[in-house]
Amino acid sequence: MKKRFSALLAILLVAVLVFSGCTSETPETTDPSGEDNTSESLNITFVTPLLGNPVWLAAKQGAEDAAAEIGATVTWVGPSDIDMDEQVRQIELAITEQVDGIISCPLSPAIFETVYKDALSKGIVVINTAVDTPEDTRTAYIGTDYVNFGQQAARNLAEQLGGEGEVAVLVTSLDTENQMSELKAGEELLAKEYPNVKIVVVETSNSDTAQAADKTSAIIDTYPELDAIWCLESTSPLGVAQTLQERDMLDKVLVLGIDDTDDVLDLIDQEMIWGTMTQDFYKMGYESVKMIKTVKDGGTVESVQDSGTTLVTKENLEEYKARF
């Protein structure tokens, strides 16, 4: 089951924060080749893990917008379903074509290390988005910083609750690394800055909307004073909202979701949940291209960059939708 489960997780790229690589130190990195290619326009290949997925289409838009600004060319390739071998083949092809930069998302980092090293040795800039590989296998990484994400989500929730309340948390499973890092960061922030906001229970949904619905029912029965439910995976909000509606408790319990899938945005629009924390895939694409340009011009870039998060509620929903 684990296999099937993780395959699904990978596909549900909305929750695509699988492994956290090097988030502690952020040393500077320079272009290993040191060549100056500024006279020619840059050729960049973006090897997406999924061709048709909305979050990656946002990253593509970001990359193309940045490319238009600097006069570079971005080639968009990748499998139509999760297929990491195909991703690696596309990267090999890009190396043969001697492109200037490669942008990708190494869903299972180990698979990409060899081909990445090969690219680096030929002077190609390699940028990871959303998931990282070890520092010596790529030029730079841009993605969501889990600690930052967890802290911001907890802070938003605490402020909305007026600094007081009981919160239940739903995660996929207790060993989903990124979600547990986010939860830990959020818990620590609450303990320090909002001691009256208490996480009373952490439950698992197995990334299954039906389980999220059933667990929510038991949670609100067990914690009648509950003020909020914080979902750290994106299939939960729909199930949570469904149960709260059935039990006529939509007004009593605040729900904070994650990511910007259609159902989550609709739930915000219908005021069934309060808000969602989204990851900025557009920025990941945009900044990746800019970083390749910087390195190719002989400059230096941060080894690890946080693409940031945005809180979307009813108030900024239309503005957010218009942007993507």
Binding site: M1, L8, L12, N206, T209, A210, D263
Partner: peptide, 18 residues
């Protein structure tokens, strides 16, 4: 289940066989 959740989820039935 799809009717109940107002959506057919790709992850529905995850682990049900066991």
């Amino acid at each position: 289940m799809a009717g109940r959740l107002n959506s057919a989820q790709p992850s529905a039935g995850n682990g049900y066989e066991l």
